[in-house]
């Protein structure tokens, strides 16, 4: 027999932790933006994002892609830790007890609420050992300097670090489609490094995301 009073006793009616109107708080008089557990958030003006890109380009030129990618890796690693910590505290159970669907939903909501765009996971290549992550409306890519190639270096690093932590194996990430090149969404493919070299060649040859994925599957078969 299920007693409703018991279910309510431990106070754990958990729901959508990252829902935007409860996750972000602010004391505007003090100039503070915080998340729901009091960690400080910063609003990045688009001019600052642009300034970071042009500053990096002036100082480091070609290397700025690598710098951004490495920044992304730090971001992804720390983001993973914080993300898990917040979810575990909130749901009062370990991450391993969270279903993949709940985990994905939380990640999607978290991404949207922070203003990083809409993230989604495409698991159709999972049997082949690849995970495809798609991001729509990325601000980081929108303000990046246009190049003849995908420019989501920050996200590439972040996704690589995040999913490496999640899967406890060293993954590599290649961006195969980019909003800056007219694609509808940014596509990133994750997998072990040796098996992704074909993707890098594909990007250089300006192949489409689907063509690159076909190539990867073919090579793996």
């Amino acid at each position: 027999m299920v007693l409703v009073a018991d279910l309510l006793a431990d106070n754990n009616l958990t729901a959508n932790y990252f829902a935007s109107d409860v996750y972000v708080h602010g004391t505007l008089e003090l100039g503070l933006l915080e998340n729901r557990r009091g960690d400080r958030l910063l609003a990045l003006p688009d001019t600052l994002i642009r300034a970071i890109y042009s500053g990096l380009d002036n100082e480091t030129g070609q290397a700025s892609m690598l710098v951004l990618y490495n920044c992304g890796r730090w971001w992804g690693k720390n983001f993973y830790t914080r993300f898990c910590e917040e979810l575990t505290d909130y749901h009062n159970r370990s991450m391993s007890n969270l279903s993949m669907a709940e985990f994905t939903q939380a990640l999607q909501q978290c991404w949207v609420t922070h203003g990083w765009g809409q993230i989604s996971l495409d698991k159709s290549y999972q049997p082949n050992g690849f995970l495809v992550v798609k991001i729509r409306a990325s601000a980081f890519i929108h303000y990046a300097p246009k190049l003849e190639r995908p420019v989501g270096f920050l996200e590439m690093g972040a996704l690589q670090a995040f999913f490496s932590e999640l899967s406890s194996q060293t993954l590599h990430c290649v961006q195969t489609a980019c909003e800056s090149l007219g694609a509808e969404e940014n596509c990133f493919v994750l997998g072990v490094k040796e098996r992704l070299s074909a993707a890098e060649t594909g990007v250089e040859q300006r192949l489409s995301h689907t063509e690159i994925m076909d190539l990867l599957v073919e090579r793996g078969a």
Partner: peptide, 14 residues
Amino acid sequence: RRRLEGWLPTVVMV
């Protein structure tokens, strides 16, 4: 609706 959107359909499915 705004707070539960996205989340509720997921847990219903899970």
